[in-house]
Amino acid sequence: MDWSLVFGNAAAELISPTTAAYALAAIGLAVHFGYTGLLNFGQAAFMAIGAYGFAVSVLNFGLSFWQAIAVSMILSVLFALILGIPTLRLRSDYLAIVTIAAAEILRYVVSTTSLKDLTGGSSGLSGFATEFYAINPFPTGNYLFWPFDVTEKELWVRVFGWSIVALATILVLLMMRSPWGRVVKGIREDEDAVRSLGKNVYAYKMQSLILGGALGTLAGIVFVLPRAVQPGNYVTGLTFFIWTIMLLGGAATVFGPIVGSMIFWVLLSLTEGVLQGLVNMGVITFLSTDQIGPVRFILIGLGLMALVVFRPQGIFGNKKELQFNV
């Protein structure tokens, strides 16, 4: 067992495209929940829209890389509208149930065998990122240093993913420091009060849903660039991981979700590597390698419970800024 490999793998997660994608999705969720108070439990659906919107546009309609991104974003806005119209007037806990249901509906639809020609059914899609790698500005070679050493392709997807995270961070910072941000934070606190001051609360919630959803969609695209699109990835569990990440860093912060994603993935990789190592070495005998996956989920569940009870504002949040008063 090579422990340096285990730690190296864990450290590599700090800059991995998956970490970037989850951070992006969590920033979107922070816009929804942390700033506006919307209980969106369907962030996985926005990611699925990014993944499928992008892949199907390229594979079935022959669109270019940027066109495919544009199509995904349009789909994302449409989805937010469809989701928001019936639910944003309802009590907040209904929003939670409807968003989770909508996400599941979407997952069933993309995995159904009846749409196999379009979405690949349960086998999903691959080979849609050719153009993305073709526009790679980095010449062939190895880059960076251990444990972050990558090929030019890996570097390109990381640079691309993290650039989007940076842009999203700036965007959300600007929005939240503007009068618009003030209104949505007011809605989080008490929507009737905001309404009584002449603000169209419904429209603001919709805008917030669209903005956070669009970030989720971009996250979905970043997520699939280095891998195949697979319907099984967009289960409710994905949404719960994004929630864990957002709460870990701090829901009402912009940088929290980024750090939250890094901590989440580093810890996950460490747990897996260390457990695998210990099982292989025979130190742990009560688990088989098959059972390491479940153990990780158990740890995530415990972490989520502890976090939300003992440190609801997250690691970086201001205790006073975020109260769960929904």
């Binding site: 907040s92 415990l302 972490g303 989520l304 939300v308 008063n325």
Partner: peptide, 12 residues
């Protein structure tokens, strides 16, 4: 809070 409890139930 109720939202927190709901998230606890998700973890559970």
């Amino acid at each position: 809070g109720l939202t927190q409890m709901m998230i606890v139930s998700i973890g559970l």
